[in-house]
Design a protein around this nucleic acid. Structure first.
Lengths: 125, 125
DNA sequence: GCGATATTTCGACATTCGTTGAAATATGGA
DNA sequence: TCCATATTTCAACGAATGTCGAAATATCGC
């Protein structure tokens, strides 16, 4: 991931309204939510929200699809993972002991069932 | 982690100079780097850098320690892990299939030796 | 104490950002 | 076609941001 793209994503998320929108959409899953419902949920005027959605889409964090009169927005999980990878990238410049806590924390946060072959204890116990 | 703290960290990192400084210091490890050397490395005027360092410290991303005439700054890896955990938090609201790719990417980025008992293939192959 | 070095603080400036109200565009239904 | 709904676009405003030059502060060695 390029530095300028990372900055675009970081600054897209670095604003209360946009962060709330993104988290809402991550929670909502792949189906996404129509713009109007998002506006109601986060308490933003439709035009204000529209500007914020544009920023999030341009940063690659959201996708949008028209469905009749409604435009449905959804989070792009890959965009978040790319950003996280970029942020962790430099941890490991010959110094694994530094980024290990980061790695562990990230694994802990991922409360998903283990990816392939790994079951030690119930996560988020 | 609180939402406002997350925003502070995101917006602290959402600026080219500050992101460059943070990455430099992550790479540098726990010993950190004196302010003057940082300024030279990232090409910022000393006073400009000072302002950016203040923002990074206030966001909790850096620590600083005076050593004689020099002030040495170091990255706080925990701050990054907290931020990543916060960003990943909502992935898993009943929808593990969404955040799984994120989790895998994070694990892949962490090029550290496996935390405890896990060796499938050379990471970053 | 004095001078030199390292860093920060202050004041000012142009630029960017987030919000608002009003108008424009797009879609679907009568 | 005409109207209602959903969303965006536009112009403008105050607030916040990043950078600069100059001055202040802190520390060290003489």
């Amino acid at each position: 991931m390029e530095s300028s793209a990372a900055i675009d994503r970081l600054s897209a998320l670095a604003q209360p309204g946009r962060l709330a929108v993104f988290r809402l959409l991550v929670r909502a899953g792949p189906e996404g939510i129509p713009a109007g419902e998002i506006a109601a949920a986060v308490g933003l005027a439709p035009n204000t929200l529209s500007a914020q959605l544009t920023i999030l889409v341009q940063a690659g964090l959201l996708s949008s699809a028209r469905e009749g009169r409604v435009i449905r927005y959804a989070a792009r999980p890959d965009a978040l993972s790319e950003l996280i990878v970029y942020l962790m990238e430099d941890c490991c410049g010959g110094r694994p002991e530094i980024c290990q806590p980061v790695q562990e924390a990230a694994a802990r946060a991922a409360c998903c069932p283990p990816a392939k072959s790994r079951s030690r204890r119930p996560l988020r116990a």
